[in-house]
């Protein structure tokens, strides 16, 4: 649990670092994208810390190209 708090602290620190500049310049579109990515990053990182089983991105590649049978059977 402590590690999840560390992640949230990191997310808060990032927000505090970046957001004021964006709000000052009224760049709301940028703010939205930033928040989306930040939330996604924090969520994933917290899930990692809590040892939730996350899908392996490389398995996606393997699934996509399974029909080729790999380069060794070329």
């Amino acid at each position: 649990m402590a590690s999840v708090f560390a992640v949230l602290a990191l997310a808060a620190a990032t927000f505090w670092l970046e957001a004021p500049a964006l709000i000052r310049q009224k760049q709301f579109r940028e703010l939205v994208i930033f928040l989306v990515l930040l939330l996604a990053g924090s969520a994933l990182y917290s899930a990692l810390m809590l040892q939730v089983k996350l899908p392996n991105p490389f398995m996606f590649i393997k699934w996509m190209y399974a029909w080729t049978g790999g380069t060794s059977t070329m």
């Binding site: 957001a19 990515l37 990053g41 924090s42 994933l44 990182y45 990692l48 996350l54 991105p57």
Partner: peptide, 21 residues
């Protein structure tokens, strides 16, 4: 977007998770 610097840290987090997983 006019700025891209603020995207770096969130993207870094996602990359980290992706690598470890």
């Amino acid at each position: 977007l006019k700025e891209s610097k603020m995207l770096t840290i969130p993207l870094g987090m996602i990359l980290l998770v992706g690598t470890v997983v």
